[in-house]
């Protein structure tokens, strides 16, 4: 049995599924954050695999854009988590309902 390129896509789909499960089923802001990173990572893996299959450098270039967006998101997001935590000593997203109509 040899590993085909589609097996990389299966790993990517699994990682994305795990990330989606975390966002849907956990209520801790930090864990949800980590799971969003997992999903971005899975998308990167799919991009690189498609770039390899289709002989196109564009997929690899797009990975850099995803990296930049992930870095920006982490900077602001973790800052928000720490700020919220300093204020109310909790990082459970269900407690944050001030903006609810």
């Amino acid at each position: 049995m040899t590993v085909a390129l589609s097996d990389y896509l299966v790993v990517s789909a699994l990682l994305f599924g795990i990330g989606a499960a975390g966002v849907l089923m956990r209520r801790n802001a930090l864990v949800m954050f980590m799971c969003i990173e997992l999903m971005l990572n899975a998308a990167n893996l799919a991009l690189v695999t498609f770039a390899r299959v289709l002989h196109d450098v564009g997929g690899q270039a797009t990975v850099f854009f995803v990296l930049v967006v992930a870095a920006a998101e982490v900077t602001v997001g973790l800052g928000i988590v720490v700020a919220i935590f300093r204020k109310r000593n909790s990082a459970v997203v269900d407690d944050l309902h001030e903006l609810q109509g």
């Binding site: 956990r26 209520r27 801790n28 992930a70 720490v82 935590f85 459970v92």
Partner: peptide
Amino acid sequence: TVYVGAVAVLVLFTVMLVREGRWFGDSV
């Protein structure tokens, strides 16, 4: 560089800053 070097380390720092609080009501 970006994920293991920056993102994972930032997450670890935040975990250490935030760890003391309450985590119950975590799962749906």
